[in-house]
């Protein structure tokens, strides 16, 4: 464990102060182009900069547009106004590098007819065919084996998704996002459907992986404790239309462990975050 990332938000090293993900006055209005439905403003004037190596969580009441925010960064949705940039390149432009961004979905998206290993290699197949990534397949196969042991799926390489528990399926989804080594990891309530035990376990594992791989993570959750436990910074969105109403620096020491949840500072920060929600 290197302690390089231990206090990354505090490490006010001028060189690392570049922002990797930036939302610039982003609005999102749904149903504007079709006359059939009423239009709904999901997000309004969102400005958010995330530095390289930072772990930022977005919390907010359900329906506030958290997922919309993430899907715009992933290039799945287009913003109505404003731009979302990754590495200074607009996500919607042709120059956008898909290999820079990985997305961990809310529910496992493992395809039922592919083994764990083949599911893991699916993004590589698509991106390689489209010339978005380089390197030969053998390199990625080796990487797949490394990732399988990184997330603790050894022995399940040839299993099919149906044979895995929900937690294990979600691990597969996590490795899918890591296989092509993107610098940005977007996570859409990845542990929302898991039980508390598995969730706690995967939280720790995520921190370990983050530490080892030095990714920049944008994490969506509705679990306030989870947000505090994982992040360098927590961003609070208001109910629809979602606007950033507050940001809280989480100055808990790293590396964090289960014991961190018991510290005074953790309870303080979690309480502070809850207060914000009461005011919404």
């Amino acid at each position: 464990m290197s302690n390089q990332t231990t206090g990354s938000s505090q490490g006010t090293n001028a060189a690392s102060r570049e922002s990797l993900i930036s939302f610039n006055s982003v609005d999102k209005i749904y149903g504007r182009d079709s006359a059939a439905e009423e239009s709904v403003a999901a997000l309004e004037d969102v400005n958010l900069d995330i530095e390289r190596g930072e772990f930022v969580s977005v919390v907010g009441p359900s329906g506030c547009g958290k997922s919309t925010l993430l899907h715009m960064a992933a290039g799945i949705l287009e913003s109505t106004n404003g731009t979302v940039e990754i590495n200074g390149i607009a996500v919607q432009s042709d120059e956008h590098q898909r290999n820079e961004v990985g997305l961990v979905f809310q529910h496992p998206v493992a395809l039922e007819w592919r083994t764990v290993r083949k599911n893991l290699l699916l993004p590589v197949q698509i991106l390689k065919e489209n010339g978005e990534i380089e390197g030969d397949m053998d390199h990625y196969r080796e990487r797949a084996d490394d990732l399988i042991s990184l997330v603790g799926l050894e022995g399940f390489e040839s299993s099919y998704p149906n044979e895995l528990s929900g937690g294990m399926q979600q691990r597969v989804t996590l490795t899918q996002a890591l296989i092509y080594n993107p610098s940005v990891l977007l996570m859409d309530e990845p542990f929302g459907s898991l039980d508390a035990m598995t969730k706690g376990e995967l939280n720790l594992e995520l921190l370990r992986i983050w530490n080892e791989t030095e990714k920049t993570i944008l994490f969506i959750t509705h679990d306030l404790d989870e947000a505090v436990f994982l992040s360098d910074r927590v961003v609070v969105l208001s109910p629809r239309p979602g606007q950033i109403v507050d940001e809280i620096e989480i100055d808990l020491e790293r590396p964090r462990s289960e014991d961190t949840r018991g510290t005074e500072r953790f309870v303080e920060l979690a309480t502070e975050l809850r207060q914000h929600f009461k005011r919404l």
Binding site: R98, L103, V109, L111, L122, Q125, I126, N130
Partner: peptide, 24 residues
């Protein structure tokens, strides 16, 4: 929707959508 989002995320072409997902 999740699979559709995944395909959009990786920029899969229409043919790739069929080859990797829809046909199966």
């Amino acid at each position: 929707e999740a699979t559709e989002n995944m395909l959009a995320m990786y920029g899969a072409t229409t043919w790739q959508e069929f080859k990797f997902v829809r046909l199966r």
